[in-house]
Simulated scan of single mutants.
Amino acid sequence: MVDGGEETVDVLKQMSLSGYANGGVFCCLFVVSCFTNKYVLSVLKFTYPTLFQGWQTFVGGLLLLVSGKLGLVEMNTFPRSAFLSWFPGSLMFVGNIYAGSRALSRLPIPVFFSLHNTSEAVTYLVLRLTHREQTSFLKLSSVSLLLMSAVSLSLLDPQFDPGGYFWALMHLLSVGGYRAFQKLPRYSHLSDLEQQCINYIFSVLLLAFAAQPTGDLLAVFSFPFLKSYKFQSGCCASALLGFFLLLSTVKLKRSFSVEHCAVWVFAAKVVTAFLSPFVFDLVVNKPLLCCLLLNSFGEALLIYSK
């Protein structure tokens, strides 16, 4: 019995170490992926989101399908009805990545994260209206803090960019709606990878059709960095990092509970926001710093309330 107990303890320790290793890999990939996207969008000023996101989703979808065929990831085949019924979710996913690219190209990373966190309020309102979801006082307080800090940011940001905040608003609405859509019971049979595979396929098609009406397809030929080694390597790196971040996120969810995964995501965003001023320009004053800290506290409180 003692030997059996010791073996159980050893297994639990190994599982714990493996889980923390997965969390560390996730945080590293998250930071590098965010910085790479920000570099391509802001420093190189590649402001053609239909092409940038179309490239990322094409590479991600291709790698995911190949990985599934080779048995490197667990992804089951799904009926055409499930594929078509997920279309509203894919539309919100496209809105998420398109508006997110627009916003990230114009806003500092800490500000972008703070506005992104407000999507939790959108999810809360949707679930409250559609499912009559009961809410604790702690969760209501955290959502209120997120909203208050986001509104304060728009008033106190010394680098206020109306276009950036507009696209951030579109982004957080898409993210909040998509998160609520994922919680519908009829889609519980689709795994995270299967959902993402459908998103990738729809995204490539939708963004390819949108490239001409938005003018991105013609304008990209005048982009000065098109033949630059930095630009080419940055775009390739962003697509590959996005795919590996997806796999790392799925692996993280298998190692921890939903609540503990949220803690790792929170930690990754805090590290990214803290390091970003050392890499990218950011004008910070006391009111802005207070808003950012208030938003982080609201997110931490939301995680604790769950």
Rank of each mutant, 00 (worst) to 15 (best):
L193H: 02
P79A: 04
V31Q: 05
S228D: 13
V270F: 09
S257K: 08
L275T: 09
V66L: 15
L44D: 10
P79M: 00
Q134F: 08
G61D: 04
N76L: 03
L207Y: 07
L184W: 03
S149K: 02
E120N: 10
A208E: 02
F35W: 13
R106Q: 12
C235F: 05
Q196V: 02
V25S: 11
Y48M: 11
V263C: 11
F223L: 09
T214K: 05
D216T: 00
C34V: 07
L62R: 00
L190C: 10
S238C: 05
A237K: 05
L226R: 13
S144Y: 06
G176L: 10
R106Y: 06
Q212L: 14
A210K: 02
Y20N: 08
L145K: 02
L156M: 12
S105T: 04
K286Y: 15
M170W: 08
S238N: 11
Q196P: 00
S255R: 07
N37F: 10
A180S: 10
G5M: 12
V271W: 10
V263S: 08
V270M: 13
L29Q: 06
N117L: 08
F83H: 11
V204H: 01
Y304K: 14
K253E: 15
W264C: 06
G4C: 01
L156N: 05
F137I: 07
K183Q: 14
G5I: 10
F243A: 03
F278S: 14
G298H: 09
S114E: 01
S238W: 03
L207R: 08
T214L: 11
V25N: 09
Y178R: 07
A168W: 08
S18V: 03
Q53P: 06
Q196H: 12
P162C: 04
V279S: 02
V143S: 01
F87W: 12
S248G: 15
V66T: 13
L145G: 15
L218P: 00
S152F: 09
L65N: 00
G176K: 06
F243H: 05
G5E: 14
A121T: 12
P185C: 08
V25E: 09
K45L: 09
G176Y: 10
Q14A: 15
L173T: 05
V111C: 01
E74F: 00
P88L: 03
G68D: 04
L172E: 03
C34P: 00
Q182N: 13
V265K: 07
V143I: 13
K183S: 11
T47A: 14
S188E: 06
C290S: 09
I109G: 03
F93N: 14
S174Y: 03
P108R: 01
N199F: 01
C291T: 04
L107V: 06
G61C: 06
D3I: 11
A237M: 13
V151K: 00
A210D: 02
C197Q: 05
D281M: 04
S222V: 05
G298S: 05
L218Y: 04
S101Y: 12
F137L: 13
L17W: 11
L226I: 15
V9W: 08
P110Y: 11
L91W: 03
L245I: 10
F231M: 07
P110Q: 12
